[in-house]
Lab assay of single mutants.
Amino acid sequence: DVEPGKFYKGVVTRIEKYGAFINLNEQVRGLLRPRDMISLRLENLNVGDEIIVQAIDVRPEKREIDFKYIP
């Protein structure tokens, strides 16, 4: 289970104008929005990159997770 405030290693699987989709595993995916990136820009991410993200909002009923990147 993903818990708000905890850090997780994930893989960038898709990049859109509104953010990057990060997979923690095959069943768990969330969104990293540009506003939640500190010292990292969306255009510097590539599909396949491994990054450490912090879960900031977890909505299991909608199967949605918002992430934050903190270097």
Score class of each variant (00 low, 15 high):
E26P: 15
L24W: 03
V11N: 05
G19A: 07
D49C: 07
Q27C: 11
N25W: 11
S39C: 13
I56V: 12
E43V: 10
S39I: 10
V58I: 10
I51G: 00
E61I: 10
I56E: 03
D66Y: 14
L31A: 02
N44E: 15
I15N: 00
L42G: 03
E3N: 09
E43P: 05
G5E: 06
Q54W: 11
R33S: 05
G5L: 09
R35W: 08
F21Q: 05
V2P: 07
E50A: 14
V2S: 02
G10T: 01
V28A: 08
L31W: 04
I51W: 01
G5Y: 09
K17N: 13
P71D: 10
F7K: 06
E64T: 10
Q27I: 13
L24N: 00
V2Y: 09
E16C: 09
N46V: 14
L45T: 01
E64G: 07
R41Q: 13
I22E: 01
L45A: 01
N25M: 05
P4L: 15
D1E: 14
R59W: 06
Y8S: 01
I70Y: 12
I56C: 06
E3S: 12
P71G: 11
M37D: 03
Y69R: 02
Y8W: 02
V47D: 03
I15E: 00
N46I: 12
Y18A: 05
R35Y: 08
I52V: 14
K9M: 10
R33P: 02
D57W: 09
F21R: 04
V53Q: 00
E61R: 09
E43T: 10
G10D: 00
Y18H: 08
E16M: 14
R59I: 04
E43C: 09
E43R: 10
E26M: 13
I70E: 11
K62F: 10
D49N: 05
R63Q: 13
F21M: 08
G19R: 03
V53N: 00
V58T: 08
G30E: 02
R41A: 13
S39N: 15
V28F: 08
R63C: 10
E50W: 15
R33K: 08
N25K: 06
E26C: 10
L32V: 03
A55Y: 03
G30Y: 03
I15R: 03
L42P: 06
V11L: 11
D49F: 06
D36V: 02
K9A: 10
R14H: 10
Y18I: 10
P4H: 08
N23M: 12
I38D: 14
E64S: 08
G10F: 04
V2I: 15
L24M: 04
Y69F: 12
S39L: 12
I15V: 10
V53M: 15
I22P: 00
F67L: 11
Y69G: 03
R59V: 05
D49L: 07
P71W: 06
E3M: 15
Y69N: 05
P34A: 12
I56G: 07
D57S: 15
E61F: 06
V12H: 00
I15A: 00
I52F: 10
V53P: 00
P4K: 15
L24T: 03
R33Q: 05
L32C: 02
G10Q: 01
I70W: 13
L24E: 00
L24V: 09
R63P: 08
L45C: 02
I65T: 04
I38N: 12
